[in-house]
Design a protein around this nucleic acid. Structure first.
Length: 490
RNA sequence: GAGCCCGUAGCUCAGUCGGUAGAGCACUUGACUUUUAAUCAAGGUGUCGCGGGUUCGAUUCCCGCCGGGCUCACCA
């Protein structure tokens, strides 16, 4: 039930009065001929005090009423324009309608363009049409809506009153469009792969489980599209990408939402070195789409995204920062001990790779503010990446790109040898049996696909939400997801 | 999951060292009429998140719960 309060009661009474006058408060359509921003541009040279004979029809939401309705600020998606409603131009019936208008109502206005002596572009209304009566009051115009909980739960209110929130979502759209366009221009095929997976593969994460009634089987919401996209490479598409949602059944934080958007792409005959250049091009294009350039400010920090970015191996970064060279440590026990001495919290039976990763995460990651590709990851945390061509069996050809201390991209020279893939999956299954819920599941059909032949392939995943956070200077992932996951209210 | 902080009118916020609450905007009524957060006058804003406890008395103190924020852990 709608809440009962004085504001709503008064507006319902006005609605009844309007309907008694024969007004349809919720009509079907309105023919617009202009929007506010376009009028601003078109009449930029119109001097103060000048009146035209140009007739326009505009529509939007009432955000301010002055002088007992004589002046109305009307906001549409593009901007604001002032409406002048005066008895010289409006019938008595129309003036009666104006008296019953409230802040928040949606109206259409036909009239003549002029600029007031004080310089405000204005429509002299000759006809005002109610397009929707608002029954609830808007948040205050001057301070906007500050309460984070309300902004996330009732995003429509946030968008109505906070222009910076509107701008964030416009930038998000431009960022995604820029990356999509770059890929399409380079000959990539945009595809869609399943959201419902029998096996939740392609990443190390806890999945959501759901149930299909007719088939009477449990299905997982996908944690990554990776394995299906590479099946499409096997099928003969050389360059594919997907921009879509992934779901991970993990905690919420300012940088984690249970559903998030990723870009994943795969390119046949490319390796991870090729993908580093592509990653830089994509993120530079996204930055230009958001702000016009490749230098940004996040939380007061200046970040220069201009390509090319440095490329450094994980082990060398750890060695530089801590003096501990994990490559010189042969055995897992010693590596774990070294990581623990560096302050990383890690179980005693962890592998060499987990130890190096823990040391990196604990001591290096947060300091990678300027963009950098961290290369040459441990094999045992990278079950889908090809062994490093250097021959070191502990390493794979994988990199993650860091900006502001965050992983924004993850990429490999994809593992294409079905025998090795089978062995890696089996190693992951043993990890699962040892209690690592996030170890990857064995996808036997994926191995079968590899047995038909996957060409050398470079792959990439980019977390779109975090990228949008960076490019819009947003402190929380909830600021860049229109409807973030929230706990149901009491 | 743990720690810290927060929850007062539609919105933004004060406040009560324990005596059931205020401001601005918004709203209502009237005045005014080429305004710009219009102005002027008058007026009611409310389970002080919810439930218990202590107390003569709780919005205030204590406990629990609900919701939110941040940090940590997990991760992208």
């Amino acid at each position: 039930m709608p809440e009962e309060n004085e504001f709503r009661r008064v507006r319902l009474e006005k609605l009844a009065a309007l309907e008694a006058q024969g007004v349809n408060a919720f009509p079907y359509r309105f023919e617009r001929t202009a929007e506010a921003a376009a009028l601003d541009a078109r009449y930029a040279a119109l001097p103060a005090g000048a009146t035209t004979e140009d007739r326009v029809a505009i529509a939007g939401r009432i955000r301010a009423i002055r002088n007992s309705g004589m002046f109305i600020d009307l906001h549409d998606a593009s901007g604001k324009i002032q409406i002048f409603s005066h008895k010289d131009f409006l019938s008595p019936e129309q003036l009666a309608l104006v008296k019953l208008l409230d802040l928040g109502d949606l109206i259409g206005v036909e009239g003549v363009i002029r600029r007031t002596p004080r310089g405000e572009l204005t429509v002299n209304a000759t006809r005002i049409t109610l397009l929707a009566k608002a029954l609830l009051p808007l948040p205050e115009k001057f301070h906007g809506l500050a309460d984070l909980e309300t902004r996330y739960r009732q995003r429509y209110l946030d968008l109505i009153v906070n222009p910076e929130s509107r701008e964030t979502f416009r930038k998000r759209s431009r960022i995604i469009a820029a990356m999509r366009n770059l890929l399409l221009e380079r000959g990539y095929l945009e595809v869609e792969t399943p959201m419902l997976h029998g096996i939740a593969g392609g990443a190390s994460a806890k999945p959501f489980v759901t149930h299909h009634n007719a088939l009477d089987i449990d299905l997982y919401l996908r944690i990554a599209p990776e394995l299906h996209l590479k099946r499409l490479i096997v099928g003969g598409f050389d360059k594919v990408f997907e921009i879509n949602r992934c779901f991970r059944n993990e905690g919420l934080s300012p940088r984690h939402n249970p559903e998030f958007t990723s870009l994943e792409l795969y390119e046949a005959y490319a390796d991870y070195g090729d993908i580093m250049g592509l990653t830089e091009a994509l993120i530079a294009a996204a930055a230009r789409a958001a702000s016009g350039g490749t230098t940004i400010t996040y939380g007061g920090k200046a970040i220069d995204l201009t390509p090319p970015w440095p490329r450094r191996s994980m082990a060398s970064l750890v060695a530089e920062k801590t003096g501990v060279d994990f490559l010189a440590i042969a055995d897992a026990k010693a590596a774990v001990a070294a990581a623990q001495r560096l302050g990383a919290e890690i179980g005693g039976d962890a592998s060499w790779g987990h130890a190096l990763e823990a040391a990196f995460a604990h001591r290096v990651e947060a300091e990678l503010v300027q963009p950098i590709h961290v290369t040459d990851f441990p094999r045992d945390i990278s079950p889908l990446a090809k062994l490093h061509r250097s021959g070191d069996p502990r390493l794979v050809e994988r990199f993650e790109s860091y900006i502001n201390g965050w992983e924004v991209a993850n990429a490999f020279s994809e593992l294409t040898d079905p025998r090795d893939q089978q062995a890696r999956f089996e190693a992951q299954m043993r990890e699962r049996e040892r209690g690592n819920e996030e170890a990857q599941m064995l996808d036997q059909d994926y191995v079968t696909a590899l047995e038909y032949g996957l060409p050398p392939t470079g792959g990439l995943g980019i977390g779109i939400d975090r990228l949008v956070m960076l490019l819009t200077d947003s402190p929380s992932i909830r600021d860049v997801i229109a409807f973030p996951t929230m706990r149901p209210k009491g």
